[in-house]
Design a binder for these strands. Structure first.
Lengths: 146, 146
DNA sequence: ATAGATAATTATAATAATTCTAAATCCAAA
DNA sequence: TTTGGATTTAGAATTATTATAATTATCTAT
């Protein structure tokens, strides 16, 4: 897959900011994440990346995902004891995980709610990251319920 | 450690509800969690449990923690890629993890804020569980900052 | 362009947390 | 008590991830 110039620029700038090199692999892994926004695991990314770049290794996929996360281009998403998933949506959002369908949805959150959450912290604490994960049943899986 | 009658009763009732047997090991693991409310990992629990019950195995600790979670007596707490931690605080609360001191704190949340979060879900979705984890720096680690 | 220095990739081994398996033990009910 | 099913135990297996060491790619300064 070809990375759109807009994203290519964003990638190069983000890497330059931390003194990292733009490589084919980093570009490719980023494009894989942008192409299908379904919160793939590292293994999923590896499988998709190999379609266009058969020589890429799993270790490199992990390295690229780590680099992209550290550069702020993607986010890691964790559910209970499951493998980490990756997501290029940078807005403040939560995740909804339907265990029935296996689907993961982004849930956009207002600034207001984020601020209320931060306000619940004791004085002096600063949050660098807030992870919010819902587990449940999505609308589709409720229809035709038994 | 001896489980207070109040907790022993709670344990027995919760296990009976799901047809599970009250065993020495389950009782002991539960008491370990109630004794020190610091969100131990399974390994931590194993180490503490062995002090009074040297023959308990790690597999049993995992089994008991799973059983207690399934019976609703304790909760599992997950941070990024770290081992699962366990917590007998059953109120609706979030967790704050200070990566500097390694400390984990319970952050009590109002019903209001929980309801606002649930209201952010698309229609038809029902949440069976909400995980909220803050990563950051606690007050103590901000003092004497460099 | 080219050479040297450094960073990144690759294949594979290692690790860490958790789960599985099979045998032994325990408990509850007949 | 015997019997059947649940539980525990020890150790092997699994899964996701990280570390290692050799090779290759990229950058910088000539």
């Amino acid at each position: 897959m070809q990375l759109k110039p807009e994203y290519k620029e964003r990638l190069d700038r983000a890497l330059a900011r931390t003194g990292l090199r733009p490589t084919k692999q980093r570009e490719h892994v980023f494009s894989v994440l942008l192409e299908k926004l379904d919160h793939p695991t590292a293994d999923d990314v590896y499988a998709r990346a190999r379609a266009d770049m058969p020589t890429i290794s799993l270790a490199t996929v992990y390295n690229c995902l780590e680099t992209l996360s550290a550069s702020g281009l993607i986010k890691q998403v964790n559910f209970e004891r499951e493998p980490t998933r990756y997501c290029p949506n940078l807005t403040a959002h939560a995740h909804f995980y339907c265990k029935e369908s296996g689907e993961i949805e982004d849930i956009e959150l207002s600034d207001d709610i984020i601020n209320r959450l931060k306000a619940a912290l004791p004085k002096g604490h600063t949050a660098h990251r807030i992870d919010i994960a819902f587990d449940g049943k999505c609308g589709g899986c409720h229809d035709g319920e038994d």
